[in-house]
Design a protein around this nucleic acid. Sequence first.
DNA 1: AGTTATGCAACCGCTAAAGTTACGGATGTC
DNA 2: GACATCCGTAACTTTAGCGGTTGCATAACT
Lengths: 134, 134
Amino acid sequence: MKRNSRLSLALHTLSHMAGSPDQVRTSGDIAEHAGTNPVVVRRVLGKLREAGLLTSEKGHAGGWRLARQPQKITLADVYLALDERMVATDETSEASACSIEHALHKRVSSVLEEIEENLVRRLSETSIAEVRGI
Amino acid sequence: MKRNSRLSLALHTLSHMAGSPDQVRTSGDIAEHAGTNPVVVRRVLGKLREAGLLTSEKGHAGGWRLARQPQKITLADVYLALDERMVATDETSEASACSIEHALHKRVSSVLEEIEENLVRRLSETSIAEVRGI
DNA sequence: AGTTATGCAACCGCTAAAGTTACGGATGTC
DNA sequence: GACATCCGTAACTTTAGCGGTTGCATAACT
C-alpha cells in the first residue's frame, strides 16, 4: 500500500459497516475487499476496538461489528483511535542547548498543535454514516 | 535524526543566519552546529537556494548566505521550499471501483487540503527574523 | 472432535531518509 | 601555476517503519 494506509483501511471498512450495522464481518472478508491481509486488518481494527468503536468475537460465526450506531462514530473518532498524528509534531524533546532552536521549536509546535486541533474538529463534523451519502 | 529533520534543519539554520545576515557560513560549520553531516546540509540548503531563499558560492571563502532580508523570509517560505507536505495527502489516485472509498477519499482530501492551506497561512505570519526574539 | 474465528508474536522484504564516502568543478591564496 | 577550500552530485551504507506472511494459542459454535 502506501502512506496513510491504516487510516484509509479503517475509514473504508467502517464506512462499509455503516451500511448494514448488524452484519458481522470477518477479517478475511474485509481484507479481500480492501486488497490486503487478514492479519493487517486485525491489527488496525484492534486499535478501533480498544477505542470502543468496534467489537470482535472469536470462534465460529465470529467477526467484527460496530460498537455504536454509525451516526455516532465520526471520522475524528477513527483518526484519534489510530493515534498516528498526520500533523507530525516535531518531538525532539532534547532541550537543545541552542536557545534559537528552542524558541523555534516552541513556535512551530504551537502552530502545529493548533492545526492538529483544527483537523480533528473538521473530521468530527462528519460521521461514517454520512460518508455513504456524499 | 528523526522525522521532520529536514524542516528542522532548514528553519534552525535560517534562524541563525537571520542574526548576522551578511556572514558566510560553510556547510561544515552548519553541520557541526546542527549535529549532522555537511552533505546533508548541502542537500537541504540546496532546496532553499532553488527557492531563492539562499545563495551559495563555491571555492575559497565560499559558503551560504541569505538571499533576502530575514524579515522577508517567512516560515512558510521555508516549508514550501522543501515541498514535503506535513499534512499527508492521501494520494491513492487509483480511482477504486468502490464508490464508498471514492466518496470517503474525496471527503478526507478536501479536509486535508483545507488544513494544509491553514498551516501555510499560519506559518507565513512569522518571519525567521522574528523567531530570534520570541 | 472438528471447524472457524480472533489474538499475538516472530520474521521477511520493501521503502524512504539520513548518513557517509568519493570525486569533480569553482574560486580564492600563495 | 600549485594548492587549499568549499560547493555539487552521485553512489553506497545504515536505519526505521510498515505491510505482508506464517504459525500457533485461544475461543466459540456445530
